[in-house]
Amino acid sequence: MQHPSPRAPWQLGPRGRRYFDRLLVAGLLLPVLVIAVAGTDPWWTILGFAQIVPLLWRRSRPLAAFAAVALASACQVLVIDSPIWSQLAFPVAVYSAARFGTAAGAWTALGVSVLAAAVATVDWSSSLSLTWARLLPNFLSISAIVITSWALGTVGRTREAHVATLLDRAEQAERIAEREVQLAAQDERSRIAREMHDVVAHGLSVIVVQADGARYAAAKDPDVAVRTLETIGVTGREALTEMRRLLGLLRSGDSGVRPQPGLGDLPHLLDEARAAGMDLEAKLPDPEQAASVPEGVGLAAYRIVQEALTNVRKHAGPAAAVRVAVEVGREVLLEVCDDGRGAAAPPGDGHGLVGMRERAAVHGGSVQAGPAPGGGFTVRARIPR
């Protein structure tokens, strides 16, 4: 099941934010224009524009916008000793400095705001008696407004940072999951490639050997040719069945129904090699021991023996004698030796030896392959159970 990609919470886009800020500034300026038309003190209009217009840059330059609004508010103290409409821009600027600026800028804006609240309290109360009973409630009320604006902006900034962190982690987890799926698919493709190589190489090597023998025997003994052709047919059908099973693994809803071969199938594999003319001696575990081996280990052992016999047909020569020994204990020990002419290519060329080592390594085992001291080639494998 594919999970949906993580999404950020809905918010206005760049264009929407620009329009919102313009409407905010226009809405705050509208009463200023009405006051100007009414013919009141011109300072109301001048300070109104000075305090409100900087909000257009409250997102891109939050601290500079706050500084401009704070400076205009400080100028107000010098010319007007009462609150005016445009001072609503001050808490908006405080919020913007905390919301869109840095933490240091937000704390600076808070300090300036509390100081401005104290100055405004004294300025607006100049006509009254300056007593703590009158000043303190006013100071607390003004401070509460700017502190609330600062707190809302700070919460918004930290929430956005937290959401960004969560989204980054979710995207990273999604990338890791996709990578794991890709690696699993790659491993599966490699496994199927090894299976196909083992099946095709083994089947075709038997068919080629039998076909060559039948060609030479046909002229002297037609009965031998008939038996050889029968072996070719049986081998071809078995290889075709294995190919169909492997291709079934690649189809959706079809995993193949034929059981995987194991140690119990080695006698049939060796009989098939003898029927193809190989001089083969074998020492195998009894059926009860073979049945006690886990399926995965048994399959790996079977494929290693199968590939080793295929290499004997390819490289050892027609007169090579082969000895196969399999022991089952705490580990499955395999040995396939021949007295032929040895490998025709250096170890590591092709897929056969690589596939053997990979199969053993999956189960924590190992494969050693190389020329034997007295001639020929030896493959030894150790696979823990």
Rank of each mutant, 00 (worst) to 15 (best):
P6E: 04
W10R: 11
G16S: 00
Y19M: 10
R22F: 00
L24Q: 01
V25L: 07
V25N: 06
P31D: 07
V34G: 14
V37D: 15
A38T: 13
G39M: 02
T45N: 03
L55C: 07
L56N: 06
S60V: 08
L63A: 15
A64L: 10
A64S: 10
F66E: 02
A68V: 04
A72H: 00
A72P: 00
S73G: 05
C75G: 11
I84G: 01
W85S: 09
A89G: 04
V92A: 09
V92R: 00
R99T: 01
G101T: 01
G101L: 01
G105E: 02
A109Q: 00
V112D: 00
L115S: 12
L115D: 09
V119C: 10
T121D: 03
D123W: 01
S125F: 04
S125R: 04
S127Q: 12
I142V: 14
A144I: 05
V146N: 06
I147Q: 04
I147D: 02
T148W: 15
T154Y: 11
T154W: 13
V155N: 05
A170I: 06
A173P: 10
A173R: 15
I176N: 09
R179V: 08
D187T: 13
D187R: 13
R189N: 08
R189Y: 05
A193N: 08
V200P: 08
Q210K: 08
Y216V: 15
Y216M: 12
A225Q: 05
E230A: 12
G236E: 10
G236T: 09
R237N: 14
R237Q: 14
E238W: 10
T241M: 08
G248S: 11
R251F: 11
P259V: 04
Q260S: 11
D265L: 00
E272V: 07
R274V: 08
A276Q: 02
D279S: 14
K283W: 11
D286F: 03
D286L: 03
Q289C: 07
A291I: 04
S292Q: 11
P294A: 09
G298Q: 05
L299Q: 03
Y302C: 04
Y302F: 11
V305T: 02
E307G: 14
L309G: 06
G317C: 06
V324I: 10
E327A: 15
E327Y: 10
G329K: 10
G340N: 06
A343S: 10
G355R: 07
G355K: 03
M356E: 04
E358K: 15
S366I: 13
Q368L: 13
Q368G: 13
A369E: 03
G375L: 02
T378C: 10
I383D: 04
I383S: 06
P384R: 05
